[in-house]
């Protein structure tokens, strides 16, 4: 992937497929490091699935026996000297708190660090693709924080206006653009 934001778009898709109703995407940055955490309340994975999930030839998909999303993210993290981990609980294992947490840790100054890229576009694409999910996107860099919580937006919109209306998506986009404007300064 040319941008980490594309890995984010791809990996968040796994939470959608896992039937999650709430997905948190948290980016925490310092000058030297970047951590990326996905946390969902989806169906979760069994121990066997967790063990095999970084193997490209293991997938739950039935169209073809190759799944590259997780291996790509793991590689992107590890090639910077960083790390990757995944924890999960199925509904059977933990009925009250099931789901998957995926963490990737990067060293930004490594030459093989993939730039974050267009995160805003990834966030709006995820919201348009699954407007029914509560997306909580948080990005912090030192003292700076930008955040989008679609349940708060939906609370304002009520039943009259859908979250994925073009005007609302444009508002989310400009809201994020405004916050990122002063982000790295």
């Amino acid at each position: 992937m040319k941008e980490l934001s594309l890995n984010i778009l791809d990996i968040a898709g796994n939470s959608v497929k896992a039937g999650a109703t709430k997905v948190g995407i948290t980016i925490t940055e310092t000058d030297e490091t970047l951590s990326l955490v996905f946390r969902d309340n989806g169906c979760g994975m069994t121990k066997e699935q967790v063990e095999n999930v970084t193997d490209p030839f293991f997938t739950t998909r039935t169209t073809r026996n190759v799944g590259l999303g997780i291996p790509f993210l793991k590689l992107a993290a590890e090639q910077t000297g960083g790390s990757f981990s995944i924890e999960s609980a199925t509904k059977e294992e933990n009925p009250g708190n099931h789901g998957t947490t995926t963490t990737a840790f990067f060293y930004k100054n490594n030459i093989d660090f993939t730039p974050l890229g267009d995160v805003i576009s990834t966030v709006t694409t995820l919201i348009m693709g699954s407007p029914g999910i509560d997306w909580v996107f948080t990005h912090t860099y030192g003292e700076k924080e930008t955040r989008i919580d679609t349940s708060e937006i939906r609370a304002v919109l009520g039943d009259d206006v859908p979250l994925d209306s073009y005007e609302v998506i444009e508002w989310i986009k400009s809201s994020l653009e405004e916050e990122y404007d002063s982000f790295y300064k």
């Binding site: 955040r147 989008i148 919580d149 708060e152 937006i153 304002v156 919109l157 009520g158 009259d160 206006v161 859908p162 209306s165 005007e167 609302v168 508002w171 400009s174 809201s175 405004e178 916050e179």
Partner: peptide, 22 residues
């Protein structure tokens, strides 16, 4: 997030349009 008041204004403006839009 940007002020939610602005979002409220978008909502008020769109309310009537949405039905047509479907």
């Amino acid at each position: 997030m940007k002020s939610l008041a602005e979002l409220q204004a978008i909502k008020d403006k769109m309310k009537d349009k949405v039905v047509l839009r479907e």
